[in-house]
Structure formats: C-alpha cells, structure tokens
Write a protein that binds this DNA or RNA. Structure first.
Lengths: 347, 347
DNA sequence: ACCGATTCTGCAAACGATTGCAGGGTTTCA
DNA sequence: TGAAACCCTGCAATCGTTTGCAGAATCGGT
C-alpha cells in the first residue's frame, strides 16, 4: 500500500540507487533524470521510510524530550519551542513525561536511546549519579541543570533575582521574605544565589520554607511571611505567588499597599491576577529552541558547537509591587542613602 | 557501540533466530536456552532496534499525537493521559503542535504516517474536506470531533451544559448570558446544544459573541453581558470566565451576590480564583487514555473495537454561583413553581 | 573514428531485526 | 537397534534505504 522507492524506480524506469540519489544528492545525477525522478516521486506521493534509512545511516531523524510534568505550564511552554525548532530542522519529536521521577526519567532515556539521535532533558530530576550514568547513552542536552562538559541551556535565574532585588531596593524595601521552593532543586539554588545581592543593597532577607511550588504552597507560606513583618514577599514561582495573593486578600492585607508580592516564571495567569503580578519572566520558547540547536550541533559532530547557552530573564513590573508604607511616609529621596551606603555594608 | 542481536547471539553461542525467539516467542525455545539467552541479553544491555523490527513487521510501535496549541492548558492535560497510557501499552509517542492551523495539521499527519502505527488528533482544526482526505492515510482517532465511522473520544459537553443550566435554574436564575467561543468550533456547538434545555427550565438565554476564548475575551465580554441585565453569566471556558471575574471586580460588581459566573474546563486556576469558579470539569486525562485504547484496538485490527467513547462532564460547584437577588428577596420556595411550570413552556 | 577523461547509472552489500522452512537432536516405542 | 515423532535450532530471505564500486554512456579533442 505505501509507495516505496522501488515503486518510484520502476515507474521512472531507473534503478533505486538513482532515485535515492536524485532526491538526496542532486549533483550526482543528470539534471534531466533528476527532474523526471522527482516528478515521478511527487506524482506517486513517495515519502522515504525513515526507519529504513535510519537503519543504514545510523541516524533516526528523531529527537526526544523528557519533562518532569506536563501539567506544570512551565514545560509545555518549553516544549512548544522545541517542537517548532525541531520541525524546522526536519526532526520529529518524541515526548515523555517522567512524573517527577528521576529513575523513571533515566529509564526513559534508555528506552528512547535507540530511536532518537539525541535527547533533551528539561529540569532533570535525576540524581547526580543517575545523570552521570545516563550521559553517554546518547547525545544529551540539559535545560535548567548544569553538568560539567555537557551542553546545557540555562535561564539566568540568578540574574533575574538580582533584578528583582534591585527593584525592591529602589522602591525602598529593607526587609523581604523569600519563599523557597524544593530545596534541592537547581532553580531554587539559583534564586538564592541571586538573593545574595540583597546584602549589598541594604536589604535583610529571611528565607522561609521549603514549600510546595504550588498555589497551595503559597497559601501556606503567606501567613508565615506576614508573621515576619516584612514589606515584600518574593515567591519561588508564580503559582506560589498567586497563592500568597489569594491568602493576603482573605486576610484583608492590601497588595501592594501593605506588602509587595513578586513571583517567577511569568505564567499566563500572572498578568491576570488581581493585582497583576510583578514577576521575573523566562524565555521558555527560546530555551526550547536553543536546546534543539545545541543538540543538532552535537549530533552533526561539529564539536566546535558551544556548550552553554544562557538566557536572560526579565523582570516584568506590574501592580503587585510598590513602595512600602515606611518609605512612603517620608520623602522619596530619603531611601536613597540606604542604597548608597550599601556597598559599605556588603564589604 | 550499541549492542545488537548479533552480539547477543555470538556471546550466547546461539544463532540470531534463537535470540529473537527466546525474547519474543518463549514457547518455541528450550527453557534452558531461553534462560541463557535472556541472561546474556540483560548482561549486555541489549535492547532491540525498533526501526529494524518495524521494517519487517510493518509496525513501528509508535503513536502520534497532534494538538492545536500546547500553550492552551487543555491539551497538555490530555497529552498527559495519552503519554502514560501509551507507555503502558509499550508505545512511544510522537508529538506535534500545529499552531491552530488545519493545513499544517494535515501535513503533519502525512509526515508522521510512515513512522507511526496511528495518530490521535485533538480538537482537529482541519476543514471537513481536509479531514476526509486525511482519513485513510493511517489509523486515526479523534478527540472532541466527530466524524462518521471514525473512532472518536468525545466529552459530553452538552451534558455538562445541561448540568449548568439545571444548577442555575435551581438557584432561581431566569435570565442568563452565554458568552460564545469560536463560533465554528465543535465545542461551542455542543455547549449551545446543551443550552437548549434552558427553555424547558424557564430560563431566557441571550447569546453574546463570539469572543476570543481567552482572559482578554472575558474582559471584553463582561461589559456586554452586564448591559443585558442578566443574573448569571456562562462563559465558553474558564479562561474567559476568569476575565469576566476580573472585569466585574474592577466594576465593583459582586460575584456571586450581584451576578453568578460559570466556566468550562476546570483548569487549575479555576479553583484559585476569587471567588473560586463554578465550572464544568472535563476528564482530560481519561480522554487521552481512552484515545490510546481506541487506537491500539484499531491497530491490532480487532474490528470489534468500539467506535465512540463518550466521557461525562461534571459540574463543580464553587463559590461563583449563588441565588440571584430577585430570588433571594422572596422565600426560596417561591422559585419552585417556575421550575414545575417549565415542562409546559417547553412543549 | 578512436581514445582518454568525465560524467551518470546500476549492482549488490550492508543496516538489525523477524520468520518460514528444513535439518539435527533427542525421545519414545516397537 | 531402528524408525517415527517431536522439539529445537539455524539458514536464509526479507523489509526499504543508502552507498562503494565498477561499468556504461557521453564528451571533447585529435
């Protein structure tokens, strides 16, 4: 039923080799023959069988992507970028969801290995040793996790956090809570790294948690943060921040009048919350595309390919952050010295 | 580098045929040999090359899924079900996103056809003629779109709407706005079908729109609905309903005191909104799983397989719906006659 | 018209698995 | 001990491509 290269060859009156070459290596075949073959192939609706081709070339033309959890909007966003970039490079995409399970993830890479030319791991949940063992099974690119000598795409979360800190400092905040996500996660580490700037800006930070990186986690965290008497709350991600917003509303704490709230990710809902959430936006789609670029490079053996692609984060200022009451009761410039003094504090 | 069946055969001191059979047809080979082969295979870490197998068997062991837009949370939810069910049935999953474009979608099916045993189309955006032409290229299962003689999984959206109508009627609402989504979409049609029950329940419905099925669409629609002096607003989906909620809050219209709001889909945010949104929940994951079941059945040629799998929707009552002011000013039982009269009105 | 140099084209061997068929062993029974 | 019956195992063909190699066709120049 499906039309093979044999069919095209017979129909065109040439050998299969000629058909193969006419389609893949145009300069090796006479122009007239080429045209004839191509025309015949189109007329018959011939599409090469990738499996058969892969058997001999050793390349499958497939990429694999493994994500921890499709119901976390973070990952479909990346996936979308992977998708379109892969299509552009003429690769098909295998998808797998490992349910936040590192062992499962490792198993999936093994299972995929034979069917793909390379795999993209999003926020891998593998333990370092699992990861170490997995590297080498197939070409691998990591997103948001960094391993020595392995190509990675990382989002400059620490940089994003620094923007957030500067923003809060500029508004005059001096006492801020950070609501941690999963303690071991790379993302959480990076956020904390960025937080170190707070000292230099004269901001005292109190770290709470870890909390579940969810709406419910935010509900939970909000009360604890409030008890610390801070003027601003930075949440691990937007989902948590939305939870915080919701809980504060219930307690009649006004945002941003009484306390400022800040999230990470810029998920679609962030802009729709009341008040719209100030947050650190990530370039999900770009990350996906970059990962494909890196992987394709790696596969084609161009060792000259770069190993590390860092994507900027961008603070999106919306209505959930403002000057704290304390700062607003005095002239605005009164807060300036605090910032200028800061270097002295830091050193 | 990768270990082939040849390697296993050599190592185990048997022929490749024996290895193949030891792994695939246990009863055809002596128990002792089988054990030895299996042990060797495991020791060497042998995994059959699916492409090679597919060449001869004609089966690839792969499934394809095409979705209109990964950034719509509706689809990742389905995808998650597809994923896990496919894994259970030992199929790998190809994913493609057609960017809401029917032509692209058709092209993707063609491109996938050779590499998969079947394809699942979620809320296909193809025109009827495109779809007609695509059927037959490969085994096909549709989700949320119904075509004669084609296996489909559909969500009983009309039934869900009827639950919504009954709920509003029971609360005493008599004048309701429905905010339409994309007019041509199957989902919108189904919702309108379910709305027909309103007449029999003594409810007057005014249909507005179409609007974009997004938060912004909801912002837009809210004012129009308010102008119609209704006591309840039913939105095409939750995203729109959230927009409505947001706009009403801005206008100081209290929900549910002044007006009730109701959505569709039960996206994660629905329960986190203020007030939490009453909505019609769909069984996304189940839909994905069911589609895989149908497809696997179809592939294995068991024509006895069912053709149509209908999934119930379930109204989730939260805090965004309540009795209208009009009904609340009189004793609650006063609204009962309206409902009992209803059949007469309907006939 | 012939020769060498160039271009094209076809043959056949891979790639890694599955499977029909036939042959080799072992067992069973006479 | 021999033959029939059975159970295992191996040979070899096959799936649809690509590609090294060799042979055929074309061409230009004399």
């Amino acid at each position: 039923m499906p039309v093979t290269i044999q069919d095209v060859a017979r129909e065109a009156g040439v050998s299969v080799s000629t058909v193969s070459r006419a389609l893949a290596a145009p300069q090796m075949v006479r122009e007239a023959t080429r045209l004839h073959v191509v025309e015949t192939a189109n007329r018959l609706g011939y599409r090469p069988n990738r499996a058969a081709r892969g058997l001999i070339t050793g390349k499958t033309g497939n990429l694999g992507v493994i994500v921890p959890d499709l119901s976390n909007p973070f990952f479909p966003a990346i996936l979308k970028g992977v998708q379109s970039q892969a299509r552009g490079a003429d690769y098909a995409v295998f998808l797998a969801d490992c349910d936040e399970n590192g062992a499962e993830e490792a198993a999936l890479v093994q299972a995929m290995a034979k069917q793909v030319d390379g795999v993209i791991l999003c926020s891998s949940r593998m333990s370092p040793s699992q990861l170490e063992r997995t590297i080498g099974t197939t070409a691998l690119v990591l997103i948001n996790r960094s391993v020595r000598d392995q190509p990675v795409v990382i989002m400059d979360v620490a940089g994003g956090m620094r923007q957030a800190v500067d923003h809060l400092a500029a508004l005059g905040h001096r006492h801020v809570a950070y609501l941690q996500g999963p303690r071991a996660s790379w993302s959480n580490q990076q956020r904390r790294r960025g937080l170190r700037r707070a000292g230099r800006r004269g901001i005292r930070v109190i770290e709470l948690g870890p909390f579940a990186p969810t709406f419910e986690g935010g509900l939970h965290a909000a009360d604890l943060a409030l008890a610390e008497d801070v003027t601003a709350i930075v949440a691990y991600n937007d989902l948590m921040a939305l939870g915080v917003l919701s809980r504060l509303a219930d307690r009649d704490v006004k945002v941003p009048a009484d306390v400022s709230v800040l999230g990470f990710d810029d998920i679609p809902m962030a802009g729709m919350a009341t008040p719209p959430l100030t947050t650190v936006a990530m370039q999900h789609g770009r990350a996906g595309r970059a990962a494909v670029d890196l992987l394709v490079n790696l596969i084609s053996g161009a060792d000259a390919g770069e190993l590390r692609r860092e994507l900027e984060c961008q603070l999106i200022v919306r209505a959930s952050t403002a000057m704290p009451r304390t700062a607003r009761t005095q002239p605005a410039h009164a807060v300036a010295p605090a910032r200028r003094d800061a270097p002295a504090v830091g050193t």
